[in-house]
Design a protein around this nucleic acid. Sequence first.
DNA 1: GCCGTTTTCGGCCCGACTGTTTTCAGTCG
Length: 571
Amino acid sequence: MSQIKNNKIANMLYEIADLLELKGVQFKPRAYRTAARNINSLSESIEDYYVDGELKEISGVGESIASKIKEILDTGRLRYLDDLRKEFPENLQELLNIQGLGPKRIIKLYEDLDIKNLEDLEEALKNNEIRKLEGFGEKSEENIFKGIKLYKESQERFLLGDILPIALELKEKLEEQQIAKKVQIAGSIRRRKETIGDIDILITSDEPEEIMDYFVNLDIVNRVLSKGLTKSSVITEKNLQIDLRVVDPSSFGSALLYFTGSKEHNVKLRKIALDHNWKLSEYGLRDKKKNEVIAGEDESKIYELLGMAYISPELREDNGEIEAAMDKRLPTLIELSDIKGDLHIHTKWSEGDNSIEEMAQKAIKLGHEYIAICDHSKSLQIANGLDEDRFKKQFEEIDKINNNLEEIEILRGAEVNIDSKGELDIDNSILKELNIVIASIHSGFKSSQKELNDRLISAMHNDYVNIIGHPTGRIIHKREPLNLDLTEIFKVASDLGIYLELNSYPNRLDLSDINCKKAKNSNVKIVINSDSHNRNHMKYMELGVATARRGWIEKTDVLNCLEFKKLKEKL
DNA sequence: GCCGTTTTCGGCCCGACTGTTTTCAGTCG
């Protein structure tokens, strides 16, 4: 297990792609990105592939990229990348992350205005210099300005889906060291927030010096910020900060509570403690009069003494969970094991990487009872969307595999496109042959609120539509949610019995935690899907379930917690 | 640079949208 190495290599390949793109090289950037993406979604360490001589087994990796991977694994560096970097100012490729800027315009900005980095770009914006350039105007300035804002936000926080595997791997490594006893990830990761600022890890150990030595010398570490006996902080190459704290076993629970947060949750707990004439801190729950610790080792004991049920970390946002815990009316949150199937799976038929059979096999391994193959429809041409004829052909393949596989049920599905008028791009004669129809918006994001609402509502009125996919369309750090009136959408969904999707893709998580809670309060049922484009994406279900838990969702709120028989009845 | 039930060489998703133009380039998905 070493996602960290895979990640490092993928990032270097992504950088090559960016630099080649700036050079105006065709096709190669895509080849490098494909390889990088596939390496990132490997479930095993790339080193294992190297050792076994199987690098070229990785899809998208051929002769040339394989030899580059070898060079990186052997030497830690790559000459080819070093040489490419020399051709441009150090941080020019960073500008590719800004929405609205591509290679052509970046090169123009560089050549005409000597813009070498983000700082130069902001300066030029301030002086209104960009609008004077040929091909740019006031609107361009405005869009670049907005793009910078989103990009900066993305620099400060990381996606849960990117950080969780790293955090879990760190935890595992620390646990392997016999000198660390208890190991727990705290902070916003433990609360499974959609974005993460840094990683906080709490441990107990009798050998703090040894464990700190081990920690600051891990290969993920780029810079050591501080190193002591109780706390050390390091920074990784991607500017992610990791704090490791050694705490006394007698206060492990109170420290865990304190460092898990949220701040607002903790403040309220401390107030309640004060009402009892107690004092709550990271060192324990303490009786002020007698000056003695009454709890600290165990987190749940603290909640118990404060007169409430144990509160799952995902709920700790001071959104009513404390009151609910006191009244014993906390929801029984959905668990990953409640999920019985995945109803949004792409395959090679459209833009997925794997075949129907491969996806089904992976789903069996994950313990799913059923999956729905929901490839894109024809108007999404970039995704090689299916037209009516190809859907018919796909039915045959699905039915055939379904008959051959006893362990799983494969449903016929589609993710059809909602056009600018709210029409679906696939004929009802095909839709009625499907077990599952997801309708999604993939274009015309900037329509007015009324137009957007009307489009979704019109799609929901189609007799064959079951699910609205990624309802708000947001891409975390990239695209704001659609300007929808969700209250109206929820009402229509509830009235018509349409399920709203919680799309588990790491940068979607759409519906968001907050919207899940609102949906639940509006009697809307949801479905949690992975939207897998590769068999290794199916594990994203974990992120969706975590988000649902943050939204107070119970298994009875979720379509794909039903067993297959009941699911079929519902549909 | 990768890949192949139309190819081991010659392709490589392509249309919509935006903002800039005055017929189109660049970007996005």
